[in-house]
Nucleic acid binder design. Sequence first.
RNA 1: GUGGGCGUAGCUCAGCAGGUUAGAGCAUCUGGUUGUGGCCCAGAAGGCCGUGGGUUCAAGUCCCAUCGCUCACCCCA
Length: 417
Amino acid sequence: MNTLRSIKGTHDILPEQSRRWQSLEQNIHNFMERYGYAEIRTPAFERTELFARGVGSETDIVSKEMYSFRDMSDTSVTLKPELTAPVIRSYLQHNLGRITPLTKLYYIDHAFRQERPQKGRYRQFHQYGVEALGSPHPEIDLEIIAIAYFSLLELGLENLTIKLNSIGSSECRTAFREALKDFLRPHLNDLSETSRRRFDTNPMRILDTKVPHEAEIVKSAPIIAEYLTSADRAHYEELKSGLKSLSIPFEEDSNLVRGLDYYTRTTFEIISPALGAQSSVCGGGRYDGLIETLGGKPTPGIGFATGIERVLLAQDAAGIIANPQNTKIYLISLDDPGRAANLVLISQLRNAGIKSDMDYLRRSMKAQFREANRLGAEFVIINGNTEIKAGTVQIKDLNTGEQSAIAPADLISHLLK
RNA sequence: GUGGGCGUAGCUCAGCAGGUUAGAGCAUCUGGUUGUGGCCCAGAAGGCCGUGGGUUCAAGUCCCAUCGCUCACCCCA
């Protein structure tokens, strides 16, 4: 094919899929309404600086995955690679905190990362997510995880695993980081190049290693849990007991660190077995330092993001399909006068709220019937010279095969009763 | 950035150890029924065999390159 193609890692959402997207989006809107979250929509691109400061310049996202360019005023801008930082920027810019001390927002949006695509990982991808800004207390952590989990259940996902960890507040992370470096230092020569680099830039990421012999070393590394302050620990325990009381299952995973710099205390991830290598459908956590980092007054926050393409993949695995919207009535034209009459009739039907369609290709009657079947029509109207002379149209029930004459003026009331 | 798999009709795929006009199923259109669908039957239309080069009397088939898709590593939604 010599035709133009979409950019690698980007995809058209075609008619056969768009219905599923609409249904999923509607589901999320309804769900968030119930939980008292309001939608926020941020621009497709932001100043590069927002992500460098907010996400962390040492993260993979910022260091190698961003679509960045300079605009006409030579400002470096970036297609948003994640959605939390723009929401916080907007929250600060418009001082949303003035309205209520706790701001509850959700979004359904797309993001862009320049990675090598694979199953469940695309360069333009979609997420829905929430951010709750203003509460440091574990009950909001509980609500966020509940929303993440229950919304996925509502979307029909099965066999989900919630992985949970607390990586502590900034004080304890500093202590932990030093302890971890002390532990790793003797092994430095055995570590891979990336791990050695992370030793200086972000040693906690080494805990995520997939290299077998490094994973072996890391097994006996210090555990963040031992460095939590008593306040951190109390927060974590309260969250866990809350999850139990809501019967939300979870597994603790002390190596769950997250690739983003801004997380504090609670981090979590939801895994689906239906996805292949990219098994995470949802990731989130608390970010008590982020708002301050972006220039706001110290404000705690927590949120998550769920990958919509991954939800769709998991739905596929669960055999979930969108319910088809059948056409109610299909108009068959037998000749020029019939077609002219049908063009008027179909307009009346549609304006009366009846889902209707007809042939625009001047095909044979047989082809028109086939089309009516394909669309799942309940009735066909048959219209031609004979009918026009009689002042009626033929209406045929495609399920029973019954057919009768009816005056066009009576058609709408007949169909609506 | 690294590695594996795959590019033949609109779609899913055959194509036997290189050998005449490249096939099937589904879908499409037309007809079998001078104005009645789904099933069935018949026919038609539809292919720079991803692209470029090479080997050969001969390449969809072998070799090289290149582009694209895909899966995986890394990391993440």
